[in-house]
Design a protein around this nucleic acid. Structure first.
Length: 477
RNA sequence: GGCCCCAUCGUCUAAUGGUCAGGACAUCACUCUUUCAAGGUGAAGAUACGGGUUCAAUUCCCGUUGGGGCUACCA
């Protein structure tokens, strides 16, 4: 397969939230396709009619689109290819590679249970392989619909994984697995092979849990006489408890990350480095460079634990690197995603372009930016307990007096801005012969409710004189 | 149980048959500073264990242990 014919795919089941494992697989496929100017196909595995929804399929497209991961082809839907699978399955019976099985699920389950009790591996015993025409007729007349099983030949199968190297498995360890259920619906391994063949997939990049499926799938390719794609099995992403990521891990869906205010570029950068490295010490790598640097050979073999702390750090790096305009756009996008609207007087670019950079500088996520913005856009202040204790309750009268003096100076100012606000504060400090902190800290608590935030005089300017005077007059208890 | 995959600081990782085993996140200290961030400086912290091969192994081989995956008429 020449590199110009690279065709890759992801094949998610549309059954709920978008898992970061899927996102990472999608990203690697995407990077690989971009790098080789190949084609990236989306295939929706919706054969599980009970759980699959079109809404979920759309969410996958939208979510990956947010990250800038886009498809060249598809989505194809497996549910629309049922007839094809059926035809292929019968083709395999014709050629002697598959056979009908009338065994009841109950009998199979029982045999399996028995084997387990004896600590013995259970393989299908091929009871239906040598059925006579008569016996078959009898089952059919009883209304029993057969499943179709593949006939696994003797021997062993080896493939060269692009990440792990050669892997071998003995056929005696593989069951004559069902390819078409008695209800006529293809099983996963069968549909995957039919699809990957029909869609001319050249490289299958998927999670390492599929290694054992690979042998089954290769047996199917061989039975059809089809060309076998290359395989690369990606290491797993584990939760902080070192367990495979699952619903237990809570906030691990793409939507959740977005809701928490992570940036698409940071997510992409972080995920790219979780299981792959370009070598050397680089950490912050823009998208275009990821494409240029990406290679299968440098994908790691061992599983990786998802480190929220590092993601948060990286997101902060990206957040701080944003220009004012980009920051505004990202923030508005986030507000919209969260269905939050700011009071109209505070949603102007004029105000936000002054406020956001000050706050973003000390934030790691857009949710934190919003949190930091609250004192400036909301009429209600909640005072930080620690701040009250530290700056008011120790000496209530003194604090009140100092703040009143400062308030008077601000009120008398011919022009109110951060420079003049600082000048009069320095004056006052000089007059009283005290340290600046004795005024600065209580003022910050009085006007923002908090002990932390942007430099005080920036805060004052942002709030505007009216609001500052009002909040200084209404001191917290 | 059977089969398969994996193993460098707490975490993500780099590196080489000969290195003081490097970087980043997190942690701690110092610094900067009106607070908080950010920044700067520094500290602590890893080749799982046991055998080989070799002048030399973290690197190659085997085993042990540990972790993970699969073992369905789920995907």
């Amino acid at each position: 397969m020449s590199e110009s014919n690279v065709r890759v795919r992801i094949a998610p089941s549309p059954t709920g939230a978008i898992h970061v494992g899927l996102v990472r697989s999608a990203l690697y496929n995407y990077l690989f396709a971009c790098k080789h100017e190949g084609t990236f196909v989306l295939r929706i595995e919706d054969t599980d009619v009970e759980r699959s929804t079109e809404k979920s399929a759309q969410a996958i497209i939208k979510g990956l689109g947010w990250l800038g991961i886009t498809f060249d082809e598809g989505p194809y839907y497996q549910s629309q290819r049922m007839g094809i699978y059926k035809e292929y399955a019968h083709q395999l019976i014709q050629s002697g590679h598959a056979y009908k099985c009338y065994c009841t699920p109950e009998r199979l389950a029982e045999e399996r249970k028995k084997a387990e009790a004896q600590r013995r591996a259970w393989r299908y015993d091929r009871r239906c392989l040598a059925l006579s025409e008569e016996e078959r007729k009898k089952f059919e007349s009883e209304g029993i619909k057969p499943a179709i099983r593949i006939l696994i030949p003797e021997g062993s199968t080896t493939f060269t994984d692009l990440i792990h190297g050669a892997i071998t498995r003995e056929h005696k360890d593989i069951d004559d697995f069902v390819i078409l259920r008695s209800n006529g619906v293809a099983t996963y391994n069968f549909a995957v092979v039919a699809d990957d063949h029909d869609m001319e997939i050249s490289h299958v990049l998927r999670a390492v849990e599929h290694i054992s499926n690979t042998f089954k799938q290769m047996l199917l390719y061989n039975a059809f006489g089809w060309e076998i794609p290359q395989f690369a099995h990606l290491p797993l992403i584990l939760g902080e408890d070192k367990k495979k990521l699952s619903k237990r891990h809570g906030a691990m869906s793409l939507e959740e990350f977005r809701a928490q205010g992570f940036l698409a570029d940071a997510m992409v950068n972080f995920l790219a480095l979780l299981g792959w490295s370009p070598g050397g010490d680089r950490e912050i790598i823009p998208r275009q460079e990821l494409v240029a640097l990406f290679s299968l050979e440098r994908i790691n073999t061992s599983n990786a634990i998802f480190d929220m702390q590092k993601l948060a750090w990286m997101n902060g790096e990206y957040l701080r690197s944003l220009g004012t305009e980009q920051l505004l756009a990202a923030f508005k996008d986030w507000l919209e995603f969260q269905k939050i609207s700011l009071p109209s007087e505070y949603s102007s670019p004029e105000f936000l372009s002054r406020a956001l950079p000050l706050i973003a500088e000390r934030s790691r996520t857009l949710a934190e930016v919003y949190e930091g913005l609250l004192p400036y856009v909301s009429d209600e202040l909640t005072y930080d307990e620690e701040g009250l204790n530290k700056h008011f309750r120790k000496d209530p009268e003194g604090a009140k007096e100092r703040l009143n003096l400062y308030r008077e100076k601000l009120e008398a100012l011919p022009e109110f801005n951060k420079e003049t606000a600082e000048v009069v504060l320095r004056e006052l400090v000089e007059e009283l012969g005290i340290k600046a902190g004795l005024i600065i800290h209580p003022v910050r608590v009085a006007v923002t409710g908090r002990t932390v935030g942007p430099p005080l005089f920036d805060c004052l300017e942002l709030l505007g004189r009216e609001k500052v005077l009002e909040r200084l007059a209404k001191l917290p208890e």
